[in-house]
Design a binder for these strands. Structure first.
Lengths: 162, 162
DNA sequence: GGTTGACCTCAACTTTGGTTCAGGTTAGAG
DNA sequence: CTCTAACCTGAACCAAAGTTGAGGTCAACC
């Protein structure tokens, strides 16, 4: 039950790009792309074909989950760079780097909740054109992070209250 | 106090693209872009310059808020298309279309919350490569919507457990 | 030992949401 | 009437996250 069976692709200790694609659900072209970006690495055979360590499957899964969370690839790459290079990452390593996403998620959930709670009344009431609206206030924490427009909604406002 | 003063740009009943940009905080180039996409409209002067109705300010504010919520421009445009064309939209009209975003937000907040709650233990424990993980399960509601990868994490999985 | 599917690289193309630039026109203040 | 800021169009460019295609090589089954 413990001995790998080399006839079965997922039991070999190295994976071809096709194996990795099948196992991870990620297209071969995307894996090439991740490799160009330095998110994953491979050794090459004498015939210049890629061979991935099984561990890479873990990395790819982490990449996909992180993308689900909304993290850009560059940030995911930066996180992966903090994993130890000299040994296989442990569960603890993965826990550490996923903790950052957890905090990020917390922040974004809070942000979206506020947005949701102000949305209907703000759009409905007309305050969108006003200075005080929670959705347009540049000093609101809402402004700080997350995807979407970086500049705030209203920059040059009424010189005097409407 | 109610009579518009035409010497003041924001009191005129039509806005130039520059006025609209200043008042909405959106770049002129972006307004042109929105117009090409059909999200806003203008009449043209004899000299081919754009003139916007004041109402357009409301539309632009709606567009920006919607983008903050994470809605793509195409969807925003579709929502705007449901506004009455023959009269100025009322507060009720705006409330109706913002309600859709509210529901969308609810769904995405719920999604992100689940993601958050499973994230650390899933990434930490190794189940990312397994079939049952909430984060990788194609039949999970998580799969249904939101930005990020459309295809699920794992398509071709182990033929047998663990 | 040949055939075929999987692999290789590099370049070009896709979408979204714009910005920037060049070259030319208009509007309104003085 | 003139000057200048603001406006116009169209094309090119940007970033992210890949996909697609052309042209060529590798490997493994029979």
């Amino acid at each position: 039950m413990e001995a790998p069976n080399p006839a079965v692709p997922w039991d070999r200790d190295e994976l071809t790009v096709g194996d990795l694609a099948a196992r991870s659900g990620v297209a071969v072209s995307a894996l090439h792309f991740y490799e160009r970006k330095g998110l994953i690495t491979s050794r090459r055979t004498s015939g210049n074909q890629r061979r991935y360590r099984r561990e890479t499957l873990r990395r790819v899964a982490f990449i996909r989950v992180s993308q689900r969370v909304g993290i850009p690839l560059a940030d995911i790459g930066a996180a992966l760079d903090t994993l130890p290079g000299d040994r296989t990452p442990t569960a603890k390593d993965w826990r550490r780097i996923s903790q950052a996403w957890h905090d990020d998620l917390d922040a974004r959930i809070e942000q979206l909740s506020r947005l949701r709670d102000h949305l209907t009344d703000c759009i409905g009431c007309g305050c969108l054109s006003l200075r005080r609206c929670a959705l347009t206030n540049p000093h609101d924490e809402l402004a700080e992070a997350g995807p979407g427009p970086r500049t705030l909604l209203v920059e040059g406002l009424e010189p005097d209250g409407a």
